Amino acid sequence: MLDNNDVLKLARNAVEKMFLEKGREFTFPFDLIWQYTEDESQIPSTARPHQVKRLLSEEYIEKTGGITRALSSKRAGSATPEYRFGRALRDKLLKFIVVENLPTLDETNIFPIIFLQKKDWDDFGYRTAYEATLAISPQKSVSLGDIKILIGNTPSEQSKLPDTFFSMHSHKFCSLGQSIEYYKNVAALDSDIRNPRCQNSCRVIR
């Protein structure tokens, strides 16, 4: 049985897939998202409504203020809020994903992505160490180096770092690269990665 976090991951992936297929100006009812999952039937109907607020808060989607028609079999034709893609996708904000191991990438991913690979370093319960890798395309990745990210002020906060995020403004956090090479690698990034639209997101790697 999928839990709410599993369903959120599926919803994120579905929105990204729809964005790549439909383009940034596309508008839609929320229930269309589930048609872009690999197996819509595996997603409990009770878990679906919870994802609206979560995707809104992550700026994956936003309301247009309009009304459209639902598409799901149970609600087909009924009035429902209209959505569009949020600024995280429309403005192509730099995305961070926390992983155990680096995944295999393909053209269905939206780039750039920074993967934060968990490390075993433990400082009296504070597990804050990651290795940062920037994926620019399926064929091109750049190792930035080690970084420590702390959220809050209690041990084991690593588990509270969102698994996917674009900005850390809503969290109390600090970060520190672990070598001069790390900062040299960040400084050497192309301007289209480090331009102003990424400023809010990139602050976590500086």
Results as ranks from 00 to 15, higher is better:
Leu2His: 15
Leu2Ile: 10
Leu2Thr: 07
Asn4Ile: 15
Asn4Trp: 08
Asn4Thr: 13
Asn5Gly: 05
Asp6His: 15
Asp6Trp: 11
Val7Pro: 01
Leu8Phe: 07
Ala11Glu: 01
Ala11Phe: 07
Ala14Ile: 08
Glu16Met: 04
Lys17Asn: 02
Leu20Tyr: 03
Glu21Gly: 01
Lys22Val: 02
Glu25Leu: 03
Glu25His: 04
Glu25Asp: 07
Phe26Met: 03
Thr27Ala: 06
Thr27Gln: 12
Thr27His: 09
Thr27Arg: 14
Asp31Lys: 00
Tyr36Phe: 12
Thr37Lys: 15
Glu38Cys: 08
Asp39His: 14
Asp39Trp: 10
Gln42Pro: 09
Pro44Gly: 05
Pro44Glu: 02
Pro49Lys: 05
Gln51Thr: 08
Gln51Asn: 09
Arg54Asp: 09
Leu55Asp: 06
Leu56Ala: 09
Ser57Glu: 11
Glu58Gln: 13
Glu59Phe: 10
Tyr60Lys: 12
Ile61Asn: 03
Lys63Pro: 06
Thr64His: 08
Gly65Ser: 07
Gly65Cys: 09
Gly66Arg: 08
Leu71Cys: 08
Ser72Val: 01
Ser73Val: 15
Lys74Ala: 12
Gly77Trp: 00
Glu82Arg: 06
Arg84Lys: 15
Arg87Asp: 06
Arg87Tyr: 11
Arg87Gln: 09
Arg90Ile: 05
Arg90Gly: 06
Arg90Ser: 10
Asp91Phe: 13
Leu93His: 13
Leu94Arg: 10
Phe96Thr: 09
Phe96Cys: 14
Ile97Gly: 07
Val98Pro: 11
Glu100Val: 14
Glu100Asp: 12
Leu102Lys: 15
Thr108Gln: 14
Pro112Trp: 13
Phe115Asp: 06
Leu116Ser: 04
Lys118Gln: 11
Lys118Leu: 06
Lys119Ser: 05
Trp121Phe: 13
Asp122Val: 02
Asp122Ala: 03
Asp122His: 10
Asp123Asn: 10
Phe124Ile: 13
Gly125Pro: 04
Gly125Asp: 02
Arg127Thr: 05
Arg127Asp: 03
Ala129Phe: 03
Tyr130Met: 09
Tyr130Leu: 12
Glu131Trp: 07
Ala132Ile: 01
Leu134Cys: 08
Ile136Ser: 05
Lys140Thr: 05
Lys140Asn: 01
Ser141Cys: 02
Ser143Val: 04
Leu144Arg: 00
Leu144Cys: 01
Leu144Trp: 01
Gly145Ile: 04
Asp146Lys: 14
Lys148Gln: 07
Ile151Arg: 12
Asn153Cys: 12
Asn153Pro: 08
Thr154Val: 15
Glu157Gln: 13
Glu157Ala: 14
Gln158Leu: 01
Asp163His: 12
Thr164Glu: 14
Phe166Asp: 14
Met168Tyr: 06
His169Pro: 12
His169Val: 12
Ser170Met: 08
Cys174Arg: 15
Gln178Phe: 11
Ser179Asp: 11
Tyr182Ile: 09
Tyr183Ile: 00
Tyr183Ser: 04
Lys184Tyr: 10
Val186Ile: 13
Ala187Pro: 09
Leu189Gln: 08
Ser191Lys: 08
Ser191Arg: 06
Ile193Trp: 10
Asn195Arg: 15
Cys198Thr: 14
Gln199Asn: 10
Ser201Gln: 03
Ser201Pro: 05
Cys202His: 06
Cys202Ala: 08
Cys202Pro: 02
Val204Lys: 12
